[in-house]
Amino acid sequence: MFKKYDKSFAILFALASVGFLIAFGVNRNFLEWAFARHHNQLSWFIRPIFIIPFCFFAFKRSLAGISCTLFCIFTSMFWFPEPSSVNADVQEFLQYEVGYLTSDWGMVKILVTLIIPLSLTLLALAFWQRNIWFGFSVMTFIAFGKIGWSLIFAGNSGKSIILPATIGLAGSMLFVYLGILRIKNRNNSDNRLSR
């Protein structure tokens, strides 16, 4: 049943994601509301975890699953309540991110930002093609790219992203690997039973 409607659900979640991004770009109140909740570092730790279902759905070749996971990544920044107190580095880093998003968009900034959808596309393609080690290489590039961008552009406050990014990378790689092993073992068992 889900395979029958896979493309329809993929389009639905893609449109929802585009709507979210447009609202984020044109409504400053919405952006500030979302970033106030993004100060809660639970949202920092949960975002890398979405790499696990993203890779799983790519491995299972489900466009709807990939699209739904991306929607969750985008919206998870405001799933948690605004914290009562905020670390100074977190505050400074998020102020920089808001400034980055709301300042003028030149060609260099557009090209740097396009690395995000390009790397996610490569990650999906790697697992879609069942190339696990290439997928892990892309995952590592994404995590260290985020850390590098944060340190280069946000300075000392960028260090606040190191722990969530590295824990997220290690956890994602472990669970993706274990999940793929389980899928392969189940497929091998099914093949033996069908003989």
Rank of each mutant, 00 (worst) to 15 (best):
W128N: 06
K60N: 05
T166V: 15
I183D: 01
G25P: 01
G158L: 05
L169T: 02
L178M: 13
L174G: 11
V26I: 11
M1R: 10
W133T: 13
D89Y: 05
F93Q: 00
Y5E: 06
R182A: 14
A124F: 07
C72D: 06
M173A: 09
T75V: 11
F54S: 00
L178G: 13
F136G: 02
I49L: 06
L151S: 04
G148C: 02
I142C: 06
D104Q: 15
E82K: 11
A16I: 07
F144E: 03
N27T: 12
I11V: 15
S62G: 05
F13S: 02
L118E: 08
L151M: 11
F153Q: 12
L21R: 06
G145S: 03
A16L: 15
I167W: 03
F74M: 11
V26E: 01
N27R: 13
A126F: 02
K3M: 10
L21M: 12
L120I: 03
Q95T: 15
F175Y: 05
N187M: 10
R47W: 00
F141H: 05
P53E: 13
P81W: 07
G19K: 08
T121D: 07
I51V: 12
G19E: 11
Q95F: 08
Q129S: 15
G179D: 01
I161R: 01
I183A: 04
G171V: 03
P48G: 03
F9I: 04
L12F: 10
L118P: 02
L123T: 01
F35G: 14
F136E: 06
R47S: 00
S172Y: 00
L31I: 04
L21G: 12
T121H: 12
F2S: 08
L94P: 15
I147H: 02
W44H: 03
I132Y: 03
K7F: 10
H38K: 04
A23T: 13
Q41K: 13
F78A: 08
M77V: 09
L63V: 04
T166Q: 07
S103N: 13
F78Q: 06
F144S: 01
S157T: 07
N27W: 14
Q95L: 11
A126I: 00
K4W: 11
F24S: 09
F134L: 11
F35K: 12
L163T: 13
A64W: 00
K109W: 07
P48C: 05
L21H: 09
S8G: 08
T140C: 09
L169V: 06
Q91F: 09
P83N: 05
L114T: 15
C72V: 05
T113K: 09
L193R: 14
W133G: 06
E97R: 08
A34Y: 02
S84L: 09
K184C: 08
M173K: 08
E97D: 13
P83Y: 04
E32S: 13
H39C: 11
T121Q: 09
C68T: 05
L120E: 05
F59K: 03
L101H: 15
G65Y: 01
S160W: 01
F20E: 07
F78W: 09
F175Q: 01
G148D: 00
L178K: 14
D104T: 14
K4I: 15
I11G: 05
Q41W: 09
F50R: 06
K3I: 09
W128A: 02
T102R: 11
D89A: 06
S84R: 08
L12W: 04
L181V: 10
S160N: 03
Q41E: 14
I183V: 12
R186I: 13
F93C: 01
